Computed example of a mutant assay.
Amino acid sequence: MTTPNILLTRIDNRLIHGQVGVTWVNHLGANLVVVANDKVSEDEVQQSLMDMVLPDVIQARYFSLKKTIDVIHKASPKQKIFLVVKDVQDALALKEGGVPIDHINVGNMHYEEGKKQISSTVSVDDEDIQAFKKLDKLGVNLDLRGVPNEKGQNILELI
């Protein structure tokens, strides 16, 4: 088993959109975006819409959490992977499943009933906070920022 070349993992409930598909991909030098989410892995319409945002030279894969855990270690070293998940629970499931995640960019978690807003783009509830604390205990750096040129902030300082 080889260690996959994961450049960055990002939590963004919008998954692939302009900021992810252009700004982050270019900044990282990624050539593969892996979206790990059970629902999206089965939704070809949503996949097609996300594919349209990516430059032609960037490939995308849409895997369930289980499939991501099962295949990520088979990735070629030539694949420069930008891993995108919808929420912190998906990120935690991947980390606990053995995906070598050491740094997470927390980009966007929409406000909904029962969540408190901790930044202009991130809202959390108690379940989210517990998941972030578990990730921290597992040694994951948790960096809140929307775009690469913003100053990042440790999300634990805000929750």
Rank of each mutant, 00 (worst) to 15 (best):
T3P: 00
P4N: 05
N5D: 05
N5A: 04
I6F: 09
L7A: 12
L8C: 05
T9C: 15
R10E: 13
D12H: 12
D12V: 15
G18D: 11
Q19M: 09
V20M: 10
G21P: 10
V22R: 05
T23E: 06
H27W: 08
N31R: 11
N31G: 10
V33R: 09
V33I: 12
V35P: 00
K39D: 15
V40Q: 11
V40T: 15
V40Y: 08
E42P: 03
E42H: 15
Q46V: 15
Q47Y: 07
Q47H: 07
S48W: 04
L49D: 09
V53P: 08
L54K: 01
P55F: 01
I58H: 07
Q59G: 13
A60K: 14
R61V: 10
R61P: 06
Y62N: 06
S64R: 07
K66R: 12
K66S: 12
K67N: 12
T68L: 08
V71F: 13
I72Y: 01
H73Q: 07
H73G: 00
K74G: 10
K74Q: 14
S76K: 11
S76N: 12
P77T: 11
P77K: 04
Q79I: 04
I81S: 05
I81N: 04
F82N: 04
L83H: 11
V84Y: 09
V85T: 14
K86G: 06
K86A: 05
D87G: 14
D87I: 00
V88I: 08
Q89C: 00
Q89L: 02
A91F: 07
A93K: 14
L94Y: 06
G97V: 04
G97I: 05
V99L: 12
I101D: 02
D102A: 03
H103F: 09
N105P: 05
N105K: 05
V106N: 02
M109V: 09
M109P: 03
E112K: 15
E112R: 14
E112D: 11
G114V: 12
G114S: 09
K116I: 14
K116A: 07
Q117F: 03
V122K: 07
V124K: 08
V124S: 04
V124L: 12
D125M: 09
E127R: 10
D128Q: 10
D128R: 11
Q130R: 09
F132Q: 02
K133D: 01
K134S: 11
K137Q: 07
L138N: 04
G139V: 01
N141Q: 10
D143G: 02
R145P: 04
R145T: 03
G146V: 13
G146S: 11
P148D: 01
N149E: 13
E150C: 01
G152M: 03
Q153F: 02
N154S: 10
E157F: 03
E157N: 09
